[in-house]
């Protein structure tokens, strides 16, 4: 099995690739800016930090956006992490526009403390495969904006000044707002689930 991290020029992807390598018994993980490699892999991952606008722009410029779109149309597994989840949605209050693969905006958090920083407890909605066994587990968040899906999707929420979407899953397209690569055992479990989910897709 081959996993590719889409390298759109935004910072460090090695933390995520190491975590995937730890989780993915035998899966080969590569970091690549090549749309062809992103098209071909069994699982494509969009990760990174910073602004949705910069992420979307990087994906467009490199041709990776198109490759990711094609994967989604063909029901081939794509996972977004943090800003990689946000970029799957539409307009952001931070400025910029995502790929629109999920419907809904990206909005500024409204809570006493923003950024939402630290470990928070997942409450599952429906039965998302990637979150199997993770109901009630703590995972690590660090973000000031969050997605607001217009469709009802399996996934997870956490509480921070109201419910925040922590994860969504629709067929072979999924995303998590938290950082599995920095979420200790629960994060490793998520990545193992993701690998199993993409194998069965």
């Amino acid at each position: 099995m081959k996993i590719v991290l889409a390298d759109y020029g935004a910072g460090n992807l090695r933390s995520v690739s190491s975590a995937l390598a730890r989780a993915g018994a035998g899966a080969e993980t590569v970091i690549s800016p090549d749309p062809e490699v992103v098209r071909e892999a069994d699982l494509a991952v969009i990760a990174g930090v910073g602004h949705l606008g910069a992420c979307a722009e990087g994906l467009q410029k490199t041709g990776l956006a198109e490759a990711l779109r094609e994967r989604v149309v063909a029901d081939r597994p794509v996972l977004g992490i943090c800003v990689g989840l946000q970029v799957l949605f539409e307009e952001s209050e931070e400025g910029g526009k995502g790929l629109g693969l999920f419907r809904g905006p990206v909005v500024r958090l409204k809570a006493r403390r923003v950024p939402h920083m630290g470990w928070n407890t997942l409450s599952l909605r429906g039965t998302p495969s990637i979150l199997d066994g993770l109901d009630g587990e703590d995972v690590y968040f660090a973000h000031s904006y969050s997605v607001r899906p217009l469709e009802e999707l399996p996934g997870a929420e956490v509480e921070h000044g109201g419910p925040i979407v922590a994860a969504v899953e629709r067929g072979a397209l999924a995303g998590v707002q938290f950082h599995p690569e920095r979420s200790a055992r629960a994060g490793a479990r998520l990545l193992k689930n993701v690998i199993a989910w993409s194998r069965s897709a």
Binding site: N12, R14, S15, S18, A19, Y140, A142, H179, E181, R182, S183, A184, R185, G187, A188
Partner: peptide, 11 residues
């Protein structure tokens, strides 16, 4: 930092 980034499982 390089080692910590790849080996640590917390931020």
């Amino acid at each position: 930092v390089e080692r910590a980034a790849t080996e640590l499982e917390i931020p």
